[in-house]
């Protein structure tokens, strides 16, 4: 099955992208751990409209202090595009994730060019970190590493 798909892709034109953003949420040895809010987005390298790939937050929390209250703690994402999203957004928003490695598919319709992928994480009773990885389309692998709230962040071809 995989082979035939690959063959098809090879025979027809190669898709602009078929790549993945890999995000690692590190385990934290702390007394009170809460899963971080995380947002991932793409911007053209020269600046321009941000495109949100994923935002993980407390979707279910309602009441006086709904989960959306702390979205602005992802302050860079919020300013660059988060605030213009209507949440929850299909295919973008999701629940917070436990420590581990996660794969976020990059959009297949990116035009060739230079981009920057950003991943931002903010944790209750913890810190906040912004990690960026350069992205070239057609996709080449690239990686970066967070120091506190994020682990390895990379772009891979599949």
């Amino acid at each position: 099955m995989r082979i035939s798909l690959a063959l098809a892709a090879g025979v027809v034109a190669a898709p602009a992208t078929a790549a993945t953003l890999n995000v690692t949420i590190p385990a934290k040895s702390v007394a009170e751990y809460h899963r971080p809010y995380v947002a991932a987005w793409i911007e053209p390298a020269g600046g321009g409209q941000a495109r949100t790939l994923a935002v993980w937050y407390d979707i279910k929390k309602k009441g006086n202090e709904p989960g959306t209250k702390w979205l602005s703690d992802l302050r860079t994402w919020w300013r660059k595009g988060g605030r213009s999203l209507k949440l929850p957004a299909d295919g973008v928003s999701g629940a917070t994730r436990a420590p581990g490695a996660y794969r976020i598919p990059l959009p297949a319709d990116l035009k060739p060019g230079s981009y920057v992928v950003y991943v931002e994480a903010a944790r209750e009773n913890g810190g906040r970190e912004l990690v960026s990885v350069p992205l070239t389309v057609p996709v080449r692998a690239a990686s970066a590493t967070g120091r506190s709230e994020l682990g390895a962040v990379s772009v891979s071809l599949r």
Binding site: T68, K69, S72, R79
Partner: peptide, 8 residues
Amino acid sequence: TVLSDLTQ
């Protein structure tokens, strides 16, 4: 100065 919901 920056809020992300309307109940605050």
